[in-house]
Design a protein around this nucleic acid. Structure first.
Lengths: 362, 362
DNA sequence: CTGAAAGCGCTTACAG
DNA sequence: CTGAAAGCGCTTACAG
């Protein structure tokens, strides 16, 4: 925005609603970091007693408690959770989450759902976003184990190492339970919660097939669930007597990139009258490109997204989309994890069924 | 999606790309958790020596090192970062992030940017999303301090407590530096990085004013930056000789909710030919409602979003939006934080200027 | 109700 | 090159 000089200056302080503290100019010496010994000494009691008031033990006289509390208060003393955890042999209720990419609404939603539901149960989250980098992912999981997390949750993060296997997951599971959301690994101490993306895609093709036949499948990442969608799409086409060859294509992660790829493929394939995208963002891009091309939606072309995210509401017409039950997946995962941490056993693999949500593009 | 029986069953295993480990049926006794004493004992050395090979100390004979390493390997031993941190008096490079709501693309993007850039610098993230709940926010910050984090980053999380002040922040800053993104608190050990949303909104009104006069401002949250936008909008209108009264209205967080509110206000105000929304999602909803109403965009009505997110590409026409430089904000914040942790001093407040990105709706 | 002491699992000067 | 010992900041049985 170019700077345009305005006649009238700002007449009020827009920040006035906030009380601004006066900044002390002379650098005051930082008070030494307090520990339980300092507090005990100053209060004239033993560290055991301080610890007891810290932990609300009933066996402390009101008078002693008050004295200790006042010393604590006057020094902004906060006990070290690190020392507490070491002493108690606990992790500090830490749970690790490693996800693919937070900027993707799907992962952001998953992390958000998991975080809030875990926080309510007293857990704290260490977060690591690793993208497609297998090594980064391995390193993150190792870090989490080192931090003694009670469990690691992987969201859409199942990738194979350079030898084509997932030994690193099997290995990590020796230290703590691994919960995988939208991925599937069958191994000891690994618990998978996933949505049957394969069937969803297959059904989707069948759903559209009576009306349109010239399909295109657009995706932007080679993840586990991405592969399921791909194979489901191909299977669906074959079952409908159509040839999937050349009908699946990868594009960038933005709507415009999906739109451009649609345009390009339109030239190649001559006709496209049904597009299924691996997520709603891509579907929106295709929808835009189709509209600009003058196609009527859904009369001339069907467009279906995936994830049933809020993006479906961002377009005109509103996008039809596959609801893959992320919310359900996350709550099942947290529920299962809670049981696990209480020593109960749970199923190794939990599957939920997706559902096509009809709106205006199909 | 209703279940439709298909003639042909799935002819191949869509999961075959993943090697499934054979699950051992008999419950094998879990090996006891190893510690440095066990390893030392089994390797026939002292724990000091084990610690040295763990830390790659050069003063260990190749032979000893090899022996220790082999014992470590055969037991999947992982040293406890908790004990290491206690011994070293470090936090384990933990940084706390507390954000408003991860499901909002703005916060998700911020967390994503911060996480990746902090991870590259060797930090790990503890994440807490607190919504508007002031108490929750306070509790999260306390938890983080307890965990001995090196710093706390707050994203759009500046809320006032019940007495209308932010004493809890000032207090928290006694323990570690506080970095605030898109908020502004002037106090010791608190560092604010923010975008001048006030001016952005004001300029925005001036930008549109030559063409349209019947403004509406839509927002969905009473955050700090939300207030800035609001006052900026009002100021801009006044400077253009317009009355802002009744021209600002709060709606829900979804596009459809924004669209509905637009419809409602259209009835009330008789005419609306310029809408500025507090984020792109809301703007998309307004755009949809306007299009359904048969309005031409931008001839009949201008629509401007905020954040310049990927949502701007999801609509037809593409949304004009204010780029509030989130990326720049995050990288400045991490840069500043790095300096702080190295003992350097930095400015208490850093401001960047937003910029209107013209697309097709203005 | 309170304190001395052992222990949580590490690291690191110090001495050899 | 290696080990015994002290220390990081807590908690908690145990004894009084």
């Amino acid at each position: 925005m170019p700077h345009v000089p305005r006649g009238s200056p700002v007449l009020f302080d827009p920040f006035s609603v906030f009380q601004e503290e006066t900044v002390e100019k002379q650098p005051k010496k930082k008070p030494a970091k307090m520990n339980i010994y300092n507090i005990a000494h100053e209060a004239g009691v033993s560290i055991a007693t301080v610890s007891r008031v810290l932990n609300n033990s009933p066996s402390v006289s009101a008078k002693t408690k008050e004295k200790v509390l006042s010393v604590i208060g006057s020094h902004d003393y906060v006990p070290s959770a690190i020392a507490q955890n070491l002493s108690l042999r606990t992790s500090g209720n830490l749970i690790g989450i490693v996800c693919y990419n937070l900027q993707d609404l799907y992962y952001a939603t998953a992390v958000s759902l998991l975080e809030s539901s875990l926080r309510k149960r007293g857990h704290h989250i260490i977060l690591s976003c690793t993208g497609e980098d297998y090594l980064q992912k391995q390193r993150s999981i190792e870090m989490l184990i080192t931090k003694q997390v009670d469990a690691v949750i992987l969201i859409g993060s199942v990738f194979l190492d350079e030898y084509g296997n997932n030994a690193y997951l099997v290995n990590a599971a020796k230290h703590c339970p691994l919960v995988i959301i939208n991925g599937k690994v069958r191994s000891e101490n690994i618990y998978s919660f996933y949505c049957d993306d394969f069937s969803a895609m297959r059904e989707c093709v069948h759903e559209i097939c009576p009306k349109h036949h010239n399909f295109l499948f657009l995706y932007d990442a080679d993840t586990y669930s991405g592969n399921l969608k791909l194979t489901g799409f191909r299977q669906g086409m074959q079952e409908c007597g159509l040839d999937p060859a050349g009908r699946t294509v990868r594009c960038g992660p933005t709507p415009d990139s999906a739109g451009a790829k649609f345009e390009e493929m339109y030239g190649v394939l001559q006709k496209i009258d049904a597009v299924i995208a691996a997520n709603d963002m891509l579907a929106a891009g295709v929808l835009n490109a189709a509209l600009r091309r003058g196609l009527r939606v859904p009369e001339d072309i069907s467009v279906v997204g995936y994830n049933n995210s809020v993006i479906t509401q961002c377009t005109t017409p509103h996008l039809s989309s596959v609801d893959n039950g992320l919310e359900q997946l996350c709550s099942l995962a947290v529920e299962g994890l809670t049981k696990l941490l209480q020593g109960e056993t749970i199923e190794g693999i939990t599957t939920i069924s997706p559902r096509l949500v009809q709106r205006e593009t199909i």
